[in-house]
């Protein structure tokens, strides 16, 4: 029922499907696509909205969510969180407990320097790659 994957805020649209309801627990603005809805809060009440929005996770939110899902054509809840979020795991566990189909997406940074070899290794790597004709 549940699985976890990684995407960038831009590339998340590759994972989304029409009929997804996004529970965005991150502070990032997500690249979206038509037919995807967002879970937002208005006047203290949960809403499924076509405009993007973020939420703060609270216990009890799942019960309220389960109450509004039948009013919308939602196939899956997509929980989006930062790379080290522990709240997202609580959210995913609560959705599992409520039997709500969902996907947990951890946002990763785009490919910045941390994704590559350390800078001090660059010269040695260059030499190895040169020997195999890559550089």
């Amino acid at each position: 029922m549940s699985t976890e994957c990684t995407a960038t805020p831009l590339a998340i649209s590759e994972l989304l499907l029409a009929g997804d309801l996004i529970l965005n627990l991150s502070s990032e603005v997500l690249n979206t696509l038509p037919g995807v809805m967002y879970l937002t809060e208005q006047n203290g009440q949960l809403r499924c909205s076509e405009t993007t929005g973020q939420l703060v996770w609270q216990e009890g939110l799942t019960t309220e969510l389960a109450g509004i899902l039948p009013d919308h054509e939602i196939n899956r809840v997509v929980v989006v969180c930062g790379p080290d979020s522990s709240v997202a795991e609580q959210a995913a566990a609560a959705l599992s407990g409520a039997n709500i189909r969902h996907l947990l997406v951890r946002l990763s940074a785009d490919c910045d320097a941390s994704a590559f070899m350390d800078e001090e290794d660059a010269e040695a790597v260059s030499e190895r790659l040169r020997q195999l004709g890559y550089l």
Partner: peptide, 28 residues
């Protein structure tokens, strides 16, 4: 497109800085 390793080298996103891919480049 799924694991994010396209070669031994790549450019850091939004830059011209050459990086060498590593185990940390994996996104799957």
């Amino acid at each position: 497109g799924g694991h994010n390793v396209f070669g031994f080298t790549d450019l850091l996103d939004g830059s011209y800085t050459l990086g060498f891919t590593s185990s940390r480049t994996f996104r799957a």
